[in-house]
């Protein structure tokens, strides 16, 4: 698969750009967290496209961001289950 570039991304409509980035991120995230991959990818897709492109080129920063997302999710899930509203 050819590397994704900013110009390739810019050629796509905005909504499509996130999908394209997600398609690149998902397999990488899936390799680390198969069960959370869809959720983590969705969280990372809220980051700026330019930053996501940098992450795709830098496995280390991508990995640390993935771990950050997992941590955020875990805290979120704990607080959700402790609230027990509704």
């Amino acid at each position: 698969q050819e590397p994704l570039t900013a110009s390739m991304l810019a050629a796509a409509p905005p909504q499509e750009q996130k999908q394209i980035l997600g398609e690149r991120l998902y397999p990488l995230i899936h390799a680390m967290h198969p069960f959370l991959a869809g959720k983590i990818t969705g969280m990372l897709l809220e980051i700026d496209n330019s930053e996501l492109l940098l992450m795709l080129e830098s496995p280390e920063s991508l990995h640390s961001k993935i771990e950050e997302a997992v941590a955020v999710l875990q805290v979120h899930q704990m607080s959700e289950s402790s609230h027990k509203s509704a």
């Binding site: 997600g22 398609e23 991120l25 998902y26 869809g38 897709l45 950050e68 999710l73 805290v75």
Partner: peptide, 21 residues
Amino acid sequence: RKSTLNPNAKEFNPRSFAQPK
């Protein structure tokens, strides 16, 4: 509070992801 990641983000559904062999 350093994380800007949103745990309520919409889940991403891959269109073309195939399991690696």
